[in-house]
Amino acid sequence: MKDYSLKINGHNYDVQIDDVNESSTLAHVVVNGVEFEVEIEGAKAAKTTKPQVAPAPKSANSAMITPATAAPSPRLSASAPSSGYAVKSPLPGTVLAVKVNVGDRVTTGQTLVVLEAMKMENNIDADRGGVVKEISVQQGATVMEGDNLIVIE
């Protein structure tokens, strides 16, 4: 309910608007204690419907959803490794540095990638030794948990 004090042609009016029916053009109004049903001229009745929520398709993946204004993250390869051991991202983040090149021999515990996640730098180390066969990301790439970073053969 809204109360108004109006002065029209030198006369004071106390107006209360109790109820406005949004599905029609009628309003319940009290002017100086007298009740009126008022039709709002020029107004159109609003059709109100509840929005329906549709479930996301089962094939939807949060990694595939990007804002229209965002530049795509730089990635070299989105494919699964053909052979060898894939070093996967343990958490979502941004690649700050790739410390190895294709063809480099790596040892167990050697830092392969530096990943920023939650404002912290995380070293992603090799779990085993071998030769770097494939690098699936580059500096500046955004990765999700479980994404392939490097393949060691």
Rank of each mutant, 00 (worst) to 15 (best):
K2G: 06
K2V: 11
D3I: 11
S5G: 07
K7A: 10
I8P: 08
N9D: 14
N9C: 05
Y13N: 06
Y13C: 09
Q16Y: 11
D18F: 06
D19P: 00
S23P: 00
T25Q: 12
T25F: 02
L26S: 11
H28D: 14
H28T: 11
V30I: 15
N32H: 01
E37F: 03
E39T: 11
E41N: 08
A43P: 00
K44L: 15
K44D: 15
A45W: 05
A45G: 10
T48V: 14
T49N: 07
T49G: 09
T49L: 08
K50N: 14
K50Q: 12
Q52Y: 11
Q52H: 10
S59E: 15
S59R: 04
S62Q: 02
S62W: 09
M64S: 10
P67Y: 08
T69F: 13
T69S: 15
A71I: 05
P74N: 04
R75Y: 10
R75W: 12
S77T: 08
P81M: 11
S83L: 06
Y85M: 11
A86Q: 07
K88N: 13
A97H: 00
N101L: 04
V106E: 01
V106A: 03
T107N: 06
T108W: 01
G109I: 00
E121F: 03
N122R: 00
N123K: 04
R128N: 06
G130I: 07
V131N: 12
I135M: 03
I135C: 05
I135Y: 04
S136M: 13
V137F: 03
A141N: 06
V143C: 13
M144K: 07
E145N: 15
G146Q: 08
I150R: 00
I150V: 15
V151T: 15
I152G: 03
I152N: 01
